[in-house]
Design a protein around this nucleic acid. Structure first.
Lengths: 224, 224
DNA sequence: TATGTTCTTTATCGAACGCTTAATTAGCAC
DNA sequence: GTGCTAATTAAGCGTTCGATAAAGAACATA
């Protein structure tokens, strides 16, 4: 949120900052910059937006790739909340409420310009960090949702009958329906639901309202 | 599908092609190339993959942007089928079947490496052609789905009560759930449902199985 | 075989790229 | 103030970018 040092100015007095502060400024500026133009964006333009000279970037990050790695680290890894899995598994709360709570918090956490666009850019580049992130989503969110859905429907648990890929795909559908709002808004810059909260609960209701017979079929083992 | 001229070779005899054929070869190579690396990909590398020299590209396309525009034209515009709207409106067929038929054909049409990736790249660039495409989807698909859904539920038609943005968002959810399979496969290069047909019918069933009460609420006019 | 057309190449331009070096200057201890 | 030191900058390295100009080679026609 904070707007740092993008004076876009011309001749600005030399300012000497504590290294940590300058580094933080560079990283945050890089996140905004690469989110906007992609990772082919040029270091000179980034420096210009920060109001510093380009060689200064290379004092703090030996290469452009090092800076990009730092951007990944900052954007992806710091935002994951392990408690999401706990929330989803808390059977003292109705499943619908659990899903709504999770998706409200998840979307509040990752729905911003920087996160969504950097996620898409790095995904298209085939970056490994993207794959790792998706694996975590699959294991810590989607598989858990499938397990809770099984329990809700009185079906055998994952330890008895392993979660099928088809079931994960169904959980992906709900996930995609909600996440795609972020894609529409920040990647495509299109209008989106003005009230995200209502949209999320609608989607959870639709999902839970229609998913039961399909899951039963899948778990019964009608192989494709 | 056809693999054209990517010999990747070193010294290759000069081949003189009829202009139309050479142009087609360049356009198809450009589609594959830009889909892979994005539009920041370099003309020299594209030429190398085509097995021609770089200046030859500029004989056929005055600038790189002209070539990119041609790529857009080729990838987007040639794939839209106006009959999709007719299919969705054909009330002699049950709505579930209409939706399944449409999404099977739609996904068969656009689910390939080139289309999905170029769509994402151009979307991230904020290209106008992307916005135009999304508007067509909204007007010719999603709004139609909402209208048919209203009819199915005995609710007033769009001429009496205009389709609300919330309703369009619900149709976006089904659309996103299915399209995101393409994103996972071609943008992220992740595993996806091995049987797309089953996945589509599952999603349509879930959607239709759970959407009724939500749509009734929305059309009744409970404003957010 | 000779000739004209035009498709394709070689050779290159100026600008911009990531990155380096060496000179400057801001901020601190005293 | 005065020096010291590290943050910052100006200048520039070699390379690569999109794009151009002119030379060369394939093909149709005679």
């Amino acid at each position: 949120m904070s707007t740092i040092g993008d004076l876009e100015g011309e001749t600005r007095p030399r300012r000497r900052l504590p290294p940590e502060e300058r580094e933080r400024q560079i990283v945050e500026g890089a996140i905004r910059f690469f989110a906007e133009v992609g990772f082919d964006g040029q270091t000179r333009e980034l420096a210009r937006r920060l109001g510093i000279t380009q060689p200064l970037l290379f004092r703090y990050f030996p290469t452009k790739d090092d800076l990009i790695d730092r951007v990944y680290e900052e954007v992806y890894l710091r935002r994951w909340k392990p408690e999401w899995t706990d929330w989803l598994e808390d059977r003292s709360v109705p499943l619908e409420k659990r899903l709504v709570r999770y998706y409200e918090d998840y979307s509040a956490t990752i729905f911003d310009y920087e996160w969504v666009r950097i996620f898409m850019f790095s995904g298209l580049k085939g970056e490994d960090i993207n794959r790792r992130y998706l694996r975590i989503v699959r294991e810590k969110i989607l598989a858990v949702v499938c397990g809770e859905l099984r329990h809700e429907l009185g079906l055998p648990g994952p330890d008895e009958v392993p979660i099928r890929p088809d079931e994960i795909d169904l959980a992906w559908s709900l996930h995609a329906a909600i996440f795609y709002v972020g894609v529409r808004k920040y990647a495509y810059r299109e209008p989106v639901p003005k009230e995200l909260s209502g949209f999320i609960s609608h989607n959870v209701r639709i999902f839970l309202g229609g998913v039961a017979p399909v899951v039963r079929e899948l778990v019964a083992g009608r192989d494709a």
